[in-house]
Design a binder for these strands. Structure first.
Lengths: 200, 200
DNA sequence: CACATTACGTACCTATAGTTACGAAATAAA
DNA sequence: TTTATTTCGTAACTATAGGTACGTAATGTG
């Protein structure tokens, strides 16, 4: 069988749609919890269990792959916002807007899968744990760079360490996502975020 | 067998130490996660499984009972702090001191069991869910009362609704407990709390 | 003493989790 | 067509979860 420019390969052609499975698992984890059983994901994705294991190796491997996809999306968007050359306060406002967007209207679950999984880090396998840690470090690093730039511009108080400020921003974002998952309205969450950011 | 002032009762005397089991379960849940299996709690407490089920009815019942104990302790201490007649800012500082106390030095696990369980509310049975909701409502109510008193004294900005302020305080406390569980130092957490509270 | 009563805990039950053995199916190469 | 190769998915396996049936032990009562 010839597909695209790939050279023809021997053996039975693969039919498992990796991306579809990943997206299915992502939505399952995100909408409910990362506890969702592999069997359920298989059923929802219309894939067989051995197929999943061939592709991802294990439950741990699947979760790692899902987090890679999810982390890529979230991290990309955040980088775009933080890399902006706008004034500090406007970037803050953009962060708020992004955070409290109406996910339901976009067909997305409330809350943030990454924060949900971070809260249960120790329950996962080594691959997932490593991915969680990496995404967290990446996130903090992006915040740090942004804050350091703001400090250089005199837009950020010098009496707060960059590290603490990054932790603060990350914590407030996590807060917002948890409140959203608990059903608090986005307006109130916005008010809370603005209050928290007004301290910077 | 005659114990205390209780009238003698027929049948084999009960040997299961309810309080000991509750404390054991509490520490298990708190130190790791509320996922800890009943069998493990039995082993740690030196009790039999049927004994546990006779006493608490189910996994759900045990978790509810544990939350009752834990909630009572936490809520009592918070009430003491919030009921103080000290100035608003000093009560805030007392809240911070209480929040970032060195739990390890007291032989207690880091973090807060209640916040940990709230994050996973939907995974529990009806009794536990109800208890979680009740404790959360109690907590918010205490914050509201305190804020309203502060407003009456002119110690709190009038442009923020009491409801939102209560949510804000509760959210910051939850944040602190999660950061503590993640291993962030209490000094940094204190700095973050002071920053968050400085916005009020 | 025998009896009614209550709690005890061993040894099981059922359901479900993650995981895989293995024979069948589908392809390219010989 | 046959063979080598690769993937397929049914039907298992093992471990562990929450939960309980039931015979036994320990008490007060008559």
């Amino acid at each position: 069988m010839i597909v695209d420019g790939k050279p023809p390969t021997r053996g039975r052609p693969k039919t498992l749609e990796r991306d579809h499975v990943l997206k299915t698992a992502l939505m399952c984890y995100w909408a409910t919890s990362p506890d969702v059983a592999i069997s359920k994901i298989c059923a929802k994705a219309g894939a067989s269990k051995p197929g999943l294991y061939r592709e991802f190796g294990s439950d741990d491997g699947l979760k790692e792959a899902v987090l890679s996809v999810y982390g890529e999306i979230v991290s990309t968007r955040r980088s775009e916002i933080l890399a902006s050359e706008q004034p500090f306060s406007e970037v803050l406002e953009a962060l708020i807007t992004y955070t409290i967007q109406d996910r339901r209207a976009l067909g997305l679950p409330d809350g943030c899968l990454l924060f949900a999984m971070r809260a249960r880090r120790d329950e996962f396998g080594p691959l997932t744990r490593k991915k969680i840690d990496q995404l967290r470090l990446d996130s903090l690093e992006k915040y740090r760079q942004w804050i350091d730039r703001a400090k250089a511009n005199g837009e950020f108080r010098a009496d707060m360490s960059t590290e603490t400020a990054a932790l603060y921003l990350d914590a407030q974002a996590g807060n917002a996502m948890r409140l959203q998952k608990e059903g608090i309205s986005n307006e109130v969450i916005g008010e809370i975020l603005r209050t928290a950011f007004s301290a910077l």
